[in-house]
Each structure stands twice: as C-alpha cells, then as structure tokens.
Amino acid sequence: MSMLEVSGVVKRFGGLTALNGVELSVRGGELVGIIGPNGAGKTTLVNVVMGVYYPDSGRITFDGHDITRMPPHRRAKMGLSRTYQVPRPFNDLKVIDNVAVAAMYGSKDLPVGEAREIAEDLLRRVRLAERAEDYPESLSVVELRKLELARALAQEAKLVFLDEVSAGLVGEDLREVLSVVRELHEGGMTIVMIEHVMKVIFNLAERIVVMMNGQKLAEGTPSEVSSDARVVESYLGRRWSEV
C-alpha cells in the first residue's frame, strides 16, 4: 500500500497543460527523486499535491484518504509538507519564528515554547542558528533555502517534498543539507526530492522519476534511469555535461 498515490492528474493554466496525466506512487519510508528540465511540471506537481491548486482532473490519495480537493492546511495536518523552490518566508516573523510557526501548526498543534525549542534545534541542524533572531529580509538566497528546509521539517510531516532545496548550495552547505536529508530518510521519513540536475540525488534516491512536458517519461533506479534510451535521448543526452 503506497502512502501517496497520484493518478491521472491534469493541470492546465489557460492554454498551457502543465501536468498531463501524471502518475506517481510513493511508498512509506521511500526516498524518491524527481528530475526533469525546467518547465517539466515538477513544481506544479508539488503544488497540486499540497493543494495550492486543485487539479482539473485526476485523483490524489494520501494515507488512503482522497485529498484531491482538500484545503492545504488539512493536508498539512495529515502529515504533508514541502519547501518552496522560490523561498516564501514570513517576513514579519523572525527566522526562528518562521520555523516555530510551522511546528505550532504543522502535523501537530504545539504550544509556542515547545515549537520554539524544535525550531532552535532545526536551525542548528541546517546551520542557520546564528540568524535565528534576524528577519528573513536580511537573509541571503542560500540562507533562505535553508530556512525553507527547516520550516518544512518543523511540521514533523510523514512525507516531505523538497523542491530544489540544493539549488545554489555549494561546499559545506550542500554537504550539510544533503546529510540532513539522508539522516531524515534513515530516521524513516518519506521524502520526495525534486532536482533540476541528477547528480545531487543519484547517490541518495532509491527510485527516480523523470518528468517531461507534464508527463512521466521514465521511472526506475538511478542506474536504470540514466541508461534509459528515451531519457538519455530527450533529456540527459543533451545535458550530460551538466548532469
């Protein structure tokens, strides 16, 4: 029985079909990677699963419940969380409170004090503790990405979508974030990790889904996918140097 089941999901924006019958199935405890070129529909898929938009057709179930048209906050309560590829911090809240508010309202209802403790802990884990008392406006892009990660984790979700969290990170920051992801996975969390390029998740993901033009192009273990003729031809081939 899979934890998340996306079947036949279609999402159009005016004349543009961003998702064209997407299928995705995620089992509990899995770490799935989704890759695909810009505009493939990866972020839109996350938005549809999280309830930012409702799909035009298709069905989404989580933990056996149909959530296709459930409001976003109830999905959070059920144990879904995500990061935003383009960070969306709460600018009137300090960095620590950005994370704390997610702990207060995420999958559990926690009091302020407890939530702040969780937040402090998470900020330390993503190496952002020294910015805890600052406001997000003063954060760099890299720091904002780490804040996104901390906020998504604070919800203590069962399944978390990481939408290109590693983009722009290098060196120690990249290693740190990836090790956080690995730890979470080892701790039993279900993770869907979206990346624009493959090398980041090649060693991390058990299974990789390749998206293209709003559809699933291929699926399999990292090595299967990277040797898949269609993938190589239509995506990896062109960009192999990048991957």
């Binding site: 959070a76 935003y84 911090p89 709460f90 508010v101 997610a102 309202y105 919800q155």
Partner: peptide
C-alpha cells in the same frame, strides 16, 4: 504567529497547516 504568517503569505501559511 498564525496571523503574521497569514498576513505575509496566505498560501505558505496554508502549507504549514
């Protein structure tokens, strides 16, 4: 905290529950 979050970004506020 919820009100501030809603004020800043209602969509993101929904995402965090």
């Amino acid at each position: 905290y919820a009100l501030s979050a809603i004020n800043n970004d209602e969509t993101a506020a929904g995402t965090v529950g």
